[in-house]
Amino acid sequence: MIQTFADWLIYSLIGLSEQSHLGAALNFFVYDTIKIVLLLFGISILMGIINAYFPIERLRSHLTSHRFYGLQYLLASLFGAVTPFCSCSSIPLFIGFVRGGIPLGVTLSFLITSPFVNEVAVAMLAGSFGWKFTAIYVSGGIIMGTLGGIILGRFRLERNLTPWVQQIIANSQAEAETWQAEHTTFLHRLPAIVRDALGIVRGVLLYIIIGIALGAAIHGYVPDEFFAEWLGSGNWYAVPVAVILAVPMYANAAGIVPVIQVLVAKGVSIGTALAFMMAVVGLSLPEATMLKKVMTWRLVAIFFGAVTLGIIILGYLNNLLL
């Protein structure tokens, strides 16, 4: 239906030829923009509903009071994936976890997965690459968070937390739960959820449009297989190079995906693209400065090193398997 509209707009109304570069590029641009904005809006609403009803405090008390035989890492990682919190909530959640007596490794599982899986990344990926690639990305993030937490949890990193956090851990106990369920009806909440979703769309719309426009331009004008030579799966250094290139691009995560999609169409291998995406979303300076509030530089470096390594391994694996 969106394709019909895009065809009608570009080929019939504006009257460009289907064979022309400009016509093809504009058609691609209109189609992708509409599709991604609709997806982002839908996913933001879904995440908003989860956010409104997710019982964080109950999950925390569950994690502290029950034995899960290792599954708690997976659980914390999944939790990081489904909670679409404003990024500034990561640290309060981190503190809330360690204060409740949840081991640092489990908390790190949450912290690793949390930035990767968010509504913008999921919507952009689903819109540009389809659901299969999105599923690989999401499950890759969850697995990485689980394993990362298990491994980092073995290293007794508690002494690398900032002193006030260590103090909190020393005083930690399963606190008396004081949560009360909120009894606001769904219909009463929906307007706020829709408004928030619109806010998310508005916040990244410009980046999306720039990204898709750039993608459309490359799509129309750069010859196929142009990138295959140096960023295809045959080059062993493609994955680490992509990860390094991705680190400074945090602010434009929404705009990056449409460009990557076109690069993949032009021969960049899928694992390299995936590693690049994950590094764009997960390795960022703002995140590092935020973590600095609860961790020493040493632990921030260990944390980012582990995540970077995880992304690179995941990239190679996907280059081998896909």
């Binding site: 964080i56 919190f85 500034c88 909530s89 309060p92 809330g96 204060r99 606190e175």
Partner: peptide, 14 residues
């Protein structure tokens, strides 16, 4: 200030 914020025992901001 995150240290002060945590004294309120909240896990989600704002």
């Amino acid at each position: 200030d995150i240290v002060k914020i945590m004294e309120y025992n909240v896990m989600a901001l704002p």
